[in-house]
């Protein structure tokens, strides 16, 4: 569970249909966003349900930078009001499908940013964004050699020489 700090209601107006949430990034940036936009996040939705149960509004501290958080908010804003099968907890898991065109452009970022976005999406439980990022990363490694995969994703080779030459064996320790 993330740390929750109490905030003044005047800081986070919550009246009417466009209630606002205060999100605090790991670099201590305060970002106000409409609750409706972030409703795609199961994590945020659960937090909001908690607020309603206690009748107290809080800021939500998140363990990633404002740069990453803003990207996630951009994604959620784009699909605001959209039905995406992946985000429907009651729907059957969708089949394999290509990355949506807008998502392709949205995820046209460097490797580290892509990895940060997928981790943030995973943390926030936004399945559609996790799926798009995972497909983008899968596309990056498909058809590549071991060395190429390491280079593309910045993976360090931590095998002992013996382990490296017996790929079928599971590593211990």
């Amino acid at each position: 569970m993330p740390t929750i700090v109490s905030v003044d209601d005047s800081t986070v107006p919550g009246e009417g249909s466009s209630r606002l949430l205060l999100l605090v990034s790991s670099d201590n940036k305060h970002i106000v966003v409409e609750e409706d936009i972030m409703s795609r996040s199961r994590f945020i939705s659960k937090q909001v349900e908690g607020f309603e149960a206690t009748s107290q509004r809080h800021a939500i501290l998140l363990p990633f930078s404002s740069f990453v958080l803003n990207k996630v908010i951009e994604y959620c804003s784009h699909y605001r009001g959209y039905y995406l099968l992946e985000d429907d907890p009651d729907a059957a898991p969708p089949g394999r499908s290509p990355v949506r065109e807008w998502d392709q452009e949205f995820l046209d970022v460097d490797r580290n940013m892509l990895l940060r976005i997928i981790k943030a999406a995973h943390y926030l439980e936004i399945k559609s964004l996790v799926g798009s990022c995972a497909r983008a990363i899968a596309d990056m490694i498909r058809g590549k050699t071991t060395e190429e995969m390491r280079e593309i994703l910045g993976v360090e080779n931590d095998f002992t020489p013996e382990e490296e030459h017996s790929p079928s064996s599971k590593c211990t320790g």
Partner: peptide, 23 residues
């Protein structure tokens, strides 16, 4: 799993390749 779709004719060259990347 996404890199190895079951019906794709051009999957990751082999899961063995993936298993050689790191522990």
């Amino acid at each position: 799993l996404l890199a190895n779709p079951p019906v794709d004719r051009h999957p990751v060259r082999s899961i063995v390749t993936v298993a050689q990347v790191c522990r």
